[in-house]
Design a binder for these strands. Structure first.
Lengths: 143, 143
DNA sequence: CAAATTCACTTGGAAATTCCAAGTGAATTT
DNA sequence: AAATTCACTTGGAATTTCCAAGTGAATTTG
């Protein structure tokens, strides 16, 4: 992975600096990308149509753009779908799977400071008991 | 904190859903906001001018906008600067300080998967030894 | 103590991104 | 064979970001 560029399949990510937080934002710093990762990790979604009807109402053009950028950033990869040739199976790369601890901290923070869905509240309770175990289980579920 | 809105001083944040990750992105989901938080936590920056010359080159209009949104989102607050009346002191709220574990996970993830500044690499080594201790120290440094 | 500078912004306009609705072609189902 | 599903693309409007310049209050300088 280059220090200041990343070009894959026509898409290009320009890294502004060698700051780890800055680089993360260059890949994931928008309103949608992390929701796609969330759908992959927590909701078992893995097709274009799944993401499109994923709750928050991303538009199709933005979805196409974000999927390409996530692929360029090494977070997701495209594969053949077991059910049909018409479908494309999106999955997290190891780099994408490694985002789970970040997601977990985000959920914990947000649950503490906002009103959120009851499911999130009970998820955070699980985390308080055994964070490492929860993360391990989530990793397993993506194998 | 309301479930779907947050309006403070003319600025407004609209929460798309009751998902904790979604709400986080509604406040912090852009290319700049988290860098401002980073500057506050890790670089001891706390004035408008500090952020403006903060390395990555945010523009003044975007900075003004992001500061207002971060304030609206309850992440930062404005105060009087001890040195001068012309300056405004920005500081993290308790909610903003609670972002430290999120930042730490982001740094750990990004350092693993990208080439980053040597400082980040040695910081991650510290984390491997005693993550809780490092987080505690960072919290202390903001008191 | 008047003039220059610092400081935290605002303003105006161009460029980029996002939103929205409609359309396309390959694969699948009816 | 026709209709539907699927993963997109296209075109255009709305919003956000970028860029350069300007503003007024507070502070420093000559």
């Amino acid at each position: 992975m280059n220090l200041y560029f990343c070009v894959v399949k026509k898409k290009e990510i320009h890294f502004r600096s060698d700051c780890p937080i800055g680089k993360t934002l260059d890949i994931l710093g928008d309103k949608w990308s992390l929701l796609i990762v969330r759908d992959l990790v927590f909701k078992g979604k893995n097709t274009y149509g799944d993401f499109l009807n994923g709750g928050e109402g991303i538009t199709t053009s933005v979805l196409a753009d974000k999927l390409a950028l996530l692929e360029c950033g090494g977070i997701i990869s495209k594969g053949t779908h077991p059910e049909s040739k018409a479908k494309i199976l999106y999955s997290l790369t190891p780099k994408g799977i490694d985002l789970i601890p970040v997601l977990v901290e985000v959920i914990e923070w947000s649950e503490k400071h906002h009103e959120v869905h009851p499911f999130a509240t009970s998820f955070v309770k699980q985390l308080k008991k055994d964070k490492a175990g929860v993360i391990k289980m989530l990793r397993q579920s993506l194998k």
